[in-house]
Design a protein around this nucleic acid. Structure first.
Lengths: 73, 73
DNA sequence: ATTAAATGACACTTATAGTCCGTTGACTTA
DNA sequence: TAAGTCAACGGACTATAAGTGTCATTTAAT
């Protein structure tokens, strides 16, 4: 599975834990609503700056974002 | 400090631990040498796919890459 | 002091990241 | 009936990352 898909799944997982919509997350992270949809569905090769914005909005540390079974090799 | 700079510093740190040149790392990750220079110096907003290539080449897990004082908020 | 390896700086093209407008369909509540 | 929220998706567009070339500078060894 590609890193894009893994990142998307993890973002969706954490967003659902927060109980907020894609649009709410997008607004919080100050990125486009349609872009969040694409990222969650593994269609975007997101840059580190936008990934940081999303992870901040999801209120987790970078290291904890990547501390999930999906990312371990 | 921006995430770009932090990522660059961390890559340089891990590369030095491995004791390899920028060019050797670039070859391992199948990325251009000058691109690695730019990333290490915080001049590139790297994508998750290229970051994964570099982290793989540095032989660390994503979560361990971000488990450094620089990245903790 | 000269050579060679390693790194830095930066301009440039092309590929694609990311935005903005909208529509559609599934589901929910009134 | 609607009327609202939400996610998925498309098309057109703009901004910028990817990728490369070239020359300058540093560093270490001879």
């Amino acid at each position: 599975m590609s890193i894009k898909v893994k990142v998307g799944q993890r973002i969706r997982e954490l967003r659902n834990e927060l109980g907020i919509s894609q649009e709410a997350l997008a607004n919080k992270a100050e990125i486009d609503r349609t872009y969040v949809t694409d990222v969650e569905n593994g269609r975007r090769n997101i840059s580190i700056e936008n990934l940081e914005k999303l992870i901040d909005a999801l209120q987790v540390q970078l290291k904890d974002f990547f501390d999930a079974p999906n990312f371990i090799k």
